[in-house]
């Protein structure tokens, strides 16, 4: 087996050591930090990009929400305006109705008072007529002249008794 020839052990081992130490130094101090740096940079970049994408997505989401909220607000405002207008209309109608009611009631009162006055007048006239009639009746029936005061008292008594 040529591998076991002793003479090449030392030179082979020496050059193995030289090569491996060189390789280790280049790898440890130059190449691997460089590769690691590239990998770390890429990882950072990917993460930053993902974060940016996530943030943009959240922003879009927020904008969407704000949009929805403003829509809801506008709708509510419209509802409020509508309700207010309806209320105002109702109030005006009510006021007009009240005014009309008051006017009508006033007229009714007035009419009633007029009727009452007419009735009182009529009643007064009636009392006079009743007194005349009573005077005539008493004069015819008993031939006595009755004084006006008595007649008036009698008529009033009779009216009160009936009333």
């Amino acid at each position: 087996m040529p591998q076991l020839e002793f003479w090449h052990f030392l030179p082979q081992f020496f050059w193995l050591a030289v090569c491996f130490v060189t390789l280790y130094c280049v790898m440890a101090f130059v190449a691997l930090p460089r590769i690691g740096g590239v990998l770390a940079r890429r990882k950072e970049k990917i993460e930053a990009d993902l974060d940016a994408a996530g943030k943009a997505e959240a922003e879009a989401d927020a904008a969407m929400r704000a949009h929805e909220a403003s829509l809801v607000g506008a709708r509510e405002a419209a509802h409020a305006v509508l309700a207010e207008a309806a209320e105002a209309g109702a109030a005006a109608a009510e006021a007009r109705r009240r005014a009309l009611d008051a006017e009508v009631a006033g007229r009714i009162d007035e009419a009633r008072r007029a009727i009452d006055a007419a009735r009182a007048e009529a009643m007064d006239g009636l009392a006079g007529m009743a007194a005349e009639a009573a005077r005539a009746a008493t004069a015819k029936l008993i031939g006595a002249a009755v004084s006006d005061d008595d007649l008036a008292g009698a008529v009033a008594a009779a009216r009160e008794g009936r009333a």
């Binding site: 990917i46 993902l50 994408a53 996530g54 997505e57 879009a60 989401d61 969407m64």
Partner: peptide, 12 residues
């Protein structure tokens, strides 16, 4: 928008 969300999650 929801598609974007899903894609970000997948990338992560």
């Amino acid at each position: 928008l929801s598609d974007l969300q899903r894609r970000i999650a997948a990338a992560r």
